[in-house]
Simulated assay, not measured.
Amino acid sequence: MIRKIALAALAATAVFHVAVFIEYGTLWVGALASYQELLLVFAFLLATFLVHAPIARLFGADRLTKPPAPVKALLEGLSVVLVSLVFWVMFFTIPQHYLVPTAEVTPKALRLSLAVSAVLSLFFYYFVEREHMRKNLEQEVIRAAQLQKETFQAQLEALQKQVDPHFLFNSLNVLGSLIHLDADRAVQFLGQLAEVYRALLDTGAQPLVPLHREMALVRAYASLMETRFGAALRVEWDVAPAWEQALVPPTAVQMLLENAIKHNGSTTRKPLLIKVSAADGLLVVENNRQPRTDAVASTHTGLPNIQRRYQHLTDRPVEIVPTAASFVVRLPLLTAPAA
């Protein structure tokens, strides 16, 4: 609003003095009363600028898709001219009639005043408001591209971690042990491993996925890790079906489970407990803190990647609450559950 007021004031001053120069050959008007017209020009331009924004939104790229482009452009220009006609009557014709009732205005002067008002309105619409909308659209395109980049990066990192030789080595060792000890569990473990890869590949290049699809990946990954670590790892679930259609960035929840397992030690006496729940528009992943004594190689990109993706999607922040006893991450769910 302040920007529009300042722009209207500057434009009104410029237009008024140009008109004075054309009429009198000077930029200075001696009579203070003459500056009433400057106030009228300011009011006209301010009202025009305020109405231009909704017109630009109405005729934006994603609106009024039925009319052909030439018809749409013609309607847009006519709307601007029509608005200028209404404001010309409001801020010039009516005030002049009441402020200077004895003044004689020729039809030629009226036509010229109307034409100048329409041209001014079209000029400021296409070179100010539409330019502003164009820049906003460019920023949206950049934002969408950045979000897609972050999403691809997260998916690539997730796939790279799952095909990491260390991960595969451990998984194959577990599978080899289970084949000798429990053939049925070995088959189950192999199915879980395949499910993790299938769920990762199914996310595609989408910036958001339904929570139920993300939970399919998370449950498969959790089952795989529970089979590997046995009683040293427990994962508890409290996600009501009402939240399953909410949207989250793909692999975000899985990355939180992976971080918890990676950075915490666990034994059968002191198991790592991870709780996954949904409430009040948030997906909460909480684990008890049991820092590992051995060094863990980490790129430290998991949480920052999740935060950056959310910054492109919503103003709601990712909440990270570390304490001495627990580590809690709350992810905004981007749609409300069905009633």
Rank of each mutant, 00 (worst) to 15 (best):
A240Y: 03
S223W: 14
H212D: 15
H263M: 05
T268G: 10
L273N: 12
V239G: 00
S266L: 12
Y221G: 05
G281L: 00
A222S: 14
P271E: 11
V218T: 04
K275H: 14
I274W: 07
F229H: 13
P241L: 02
A231I: 05
W237K: 01
P241S: 03
A220G: 02
A231H: 12
T251I: 05
A232Q: 06
L257Y: 02
R213K: 13
Y221S: 07
E258C: 12
A231G: 08
L247N: 03
S266T: 01
R269T: 10
L224I: 12
V276P: 02
M215G: 02
P250M: 08
N264I: 07
V248C: 04
A220Q: 03
K262V: 02
E244R: 11
S223H: 15
P241T: 00
M225S: 14
L217Y: 06
K270W: 04
H263E: 02
S223K: 15
R228G: 13
E244K: 10
A260Y: 04
T227C: 15
P249R: 05
L208T: 04
Y221Q: 08
V235D: 11
G265D: 14
E236C: 12
M215H: 04
R213N: 10
L257G: 01
A231M: 10
F229G: 09
I261S: 01
A242V: 11
P249A: 11
Q254L: 13
R228S: 13
R269M: 12
S266G: 12
G281C: 00
T268V: 13
L247D: 03
G265A: 14
M255I: 10
L272A: 06
V239H: 02
V253K: 00
A231S: 13
V276S: 05
P271R: 10
L211Y: 03
V218Q: 04
P250I: 05
T251A: 05
Q254Y: 11
R228L: 14
K262R: 10
A216G: 09
E214D: 02
D238Y: 05
L273D: 12
D280N: 09
I261C: 02
A216Y: 06
N264V: 07
R213Y: 07
